[in-house]
Every structure is written in structure tokens, then in C-alpha cells.
Nucleic acid binder design. Structure first.
Lengths: 209, 209
DNA sequence: GGATATCGCAACTCGAAGTTGCGATAGATT
DNA sequence: AATCTATCGCAACTTCGAGTTGCGATATCC
């Protein structure tokens, strides 16, 4: 009796299905949007039956969360050009680029303008944002070390200011977003930073007198 | 023959129903959110039958659009304290206040994170934002006239920078939003403005030589 | 080539959207 | 106050998508 491995003989089929359904989910998201996305539609596009989807994912929302998480699991490179100005511009431009593709827009919409009711999706969106922000912080700390920015500059606040107008245009105003938008955001963030707007005012004064 | 008025004898009932349904819609929005809002639930809360709602509004989305539009039809006062700094702070604080109430949050969520698929709702959201922004522009133009801000400062850009971090916290990061958030936004916008970050760089120079 | 996990399929329940016809009610007019 | 009529309540209906179940077909791993 070699009762051996209790799990998984035909496991090869699973990954194919998984990938096909993921791709189909994102595609349907682009075409139909979150509200009009049906499990049956996803299944048909993936060349898979509805029950197969439900066997692998608990419900529609789990499917969305999974597909979005997988799509977001690409790490954006953190620029290191030597000057804050170029670094901030590069950051803003890469942010713009990642959300101006059809898929990027659909993912953004699903995360922040479609499924915010679902705690998991909203949390995933916030998590992605914070994660990218954290990884970009060296851009600021390096600039402080180089003496380009005031000592005590709060990296998170600066980077939020950098990203905020881009998200505003994408989610609220619907203004077109392009490189000029990114460059302007970088310009504003840099100017405010140089003026010390990201240095907490009431900490122990760095040079009181 | 006094065939006279062809329209509206018992019109008094209509307005009551309309108001009750509007209130119920917003209340349900606060409790359940956009996705889980059902027409039947709204009707029951309004003490009205489902068919009555469907006679007055085309479908669920029209009901939402109407309720949101009516709720947004309150004009926020534009501050005029005498200094840009206080004006910007007041603007940011009133923005924070209007979205930190339960109803405010629900309306915001419905506009920008729930119904963005519906062109009418998305357009309404953008319209409300632009409208408020336009009406707040005098704050900037007056400051320029007083010599507090550089000549050529773009009011819209400055005000978008003022509002952007607040919307970012509300819609993306989920960070708590309070007066400190508002004051920080005002601080950043002012600093960037004083540095000339909202003066278009390549227009005919204001003082070339 | 055989064992078995996975998939396809059909048929089902359930809940909410939206519709229809008729009878009841409440408001404006005289 | 009586009446006319628009509006509302009610019940029954269709449609559609979410999610479930049991069984037979198939692909994968050994």
C-alpha cells in the first residue's frame, strides 16, 4: 500500500484555469466595469464553466480581490537619478503611466470606485498605496541626506502630496492625466517641501537660536 | 365648460413622497452602502410602496442621482477673512467637515466609490467639485490682488492642490481626516503657491527685464 | 494504462430589479 | 361638504444573476 501523497494528482489543470479566469476577470472589468461584471460572463470568457469558478473562489468578491491582488503584485522601480526633482518627476510619471492604460484604469476603478464597500478590496487598495509609498520613501530620505531638502522632512507627507492630485484627477474630476500632470505634481511637491511644509512645526526645534 | 387646468390637482402628496423617499435613500445609503441599497428597502423606510418609487423614478440609479443631487444642492460659503492663509484653512476645514458626517461619507462613497460606472452620477460628482472650486476662486484672486500671492497664480490649480490630499485620505488611504489634515493641506498649498508653483512657467514673462 | 482529482453540465433555490392592472385614498375645486 | 381625479397601495408577475448540488466526463499524474 503506497497510500503516500494524500493531495494533488492532477494539479496541473488548476493553474491554467486560475490564470484564464484571472485574465478573463480583468478583461471583463475593463469592458463592463465592476457593477456589471457577472461570474457567468467571466466563466464564458475564460472558457470555463460557472461552477468551476465557484469551486475555486468563494464568491464574486473573492474572485475580484484575488484578480486585483495578482495584478497589483508587480513592484514599481524606485528611481534614483541623483536629484529630488528628477526622482519626484519619475515617481509621478510612473504613477500616471500605471493608471492610464485601460486595465490600469479598470483596476483603479474597481479598487477605489467600485468595490470600496467590500472591506477586503478597500483594504487591498489602501495596502497597495501604502506599500508603494513606503518603498518610495528612500527618494526623500536620500534627498535630505544630500542636503536638497530640509532636515526633518516627512517622507510620507511629501509623497502623499505628490500622488494626491493625480488620484484627484483620476477619481474625482476626471481631468485628463498625462506627463504634464505628473510634472506639475512634482513641481508642487518640491516647492512645498523646499519651503518646509513637510517639516512638523512643533517638534523640538532644530536650531532654536 | 371649464375644462381649464389640464394638470395637477392633487399635487400636494407628491412632494411629501418625494422628500420621504429622498431622506430614506440617503439613510439607506449610510447604513447599507450603494451596492446593498435596494429599492424595496428604501420604499419601506419611506413608508411607501415600491411601485410608487418606480412611478416617480425610472430606476434605482435615477433615484440615487436625484437624491445625491438634492443633497449636494447646498452652497458652501466662501471665506473672506482678509488673508490667504486663513481663507485656505477655512476652505479646507469646511471641506473636511462636509465629508466627515455619516451622510457626507455615504454621499462621497456613492459619488466616487460606488456609482462611478453610472455616467450621470460620475458627472454629477465632477460637476459638484468643479462648481465649488469655481466659486472658491475669488479667495485666490483676491490674495493676488492684495499682493499675498504671485501674479499669474492659477486659482484652479491651487485649489485642486488644497483639496487633493483630503480626497486622497477619504477615498484611497482611508486615513483619518480632521482639522489637522485640513490645516496641513492649507499649509502645503500656501507654501507651493508662494514659491510660484502655480504660475505657468512658459507664458510671456511678467517682468522679463 | 489506470486511479483520482478536477471540470462540465443541468437543474435548482433565492433575492432583487422592474412591470402591470385594479382597487383604495387623499387632495384640490366648486 | 361633496365630488372628481391624480396618485398611491397591493398583489402577482417576469427576468436576471448569485450561489448550490449531484452526477457524469475528462485530463493529469504515476
Amino acid at each position: 500500500m503506497e497510500a503516500s501523497r494524500p493531495t494533488a494528482r492532477p494539479v496541473g489543470r488548476g493553474v491554467k484555469v486560475r490564470e484564464a479566469v484571472h485574465a478573463a476577470t480583468l478583461a471583463e472589468l475593463v469592458e463592463k466595469g465592476y457593477a456589471a461584471l457577472t461570474v457567468e460572463g467571466v466563466a464564458q470568457r475564460a472558457g470555463v464553466h460557472k461552477t468551476t469558478v465557484y469551486r475555486r473562489w468563494k464568491d464574486r468578491e473573492s474572485l475580484l480581490v484575488d484578480a486585483l491582488a495578482e495584478h497589483m503584485a508587480v513592484d514599481v522601480p524606485v528611481p534614483d537619478t541623483g536629484t529630488v526633482e528628477d526622482d519626484l518627476r519619475a515617481l509621478a510619471r510612473s504613477l500616471v503611466q500605471s493608471y492610464t492604460s485601460p486595465t490600469g484604469r479598470a483596476v483603479l476603478a474597481a479598487m477605489f470606485t467600485g468595490a470600496a464597500r467590500l472591506p477586503e478590496i478597500a483594504a487591498a487598495g489602501g495596502h497597495v498605496f501604502r506599500d508603494r509609498l513606503t518603498r518610495a520613501e528612500p527618494v526623500v530620505t536620500r534627498a535630505v541626506e544630500r542636503g536638497e531638502l530640509p532636515v526633518g522632512t516627512d517622507p510620507a507627507e511629501l509623497l502623499k502630496t505628490l500622488a494626491a492630485p493625480i488620484y484627484l484627477s483620476l477619481l474625482v474630476t476626471g481631468d485628463p492625466v498625462d506627463e504634464a500632470t505628473a510634472d506639475q505634481a512634482a513641481r508642487v511637491a518640491l516647492a512645498a517641501s523646499l519651503a518646509g511644509a513637510f517639516v512638523p512645526p512643533d517638534v523640538a526645534g532644530p536650531a532654536p537660536g
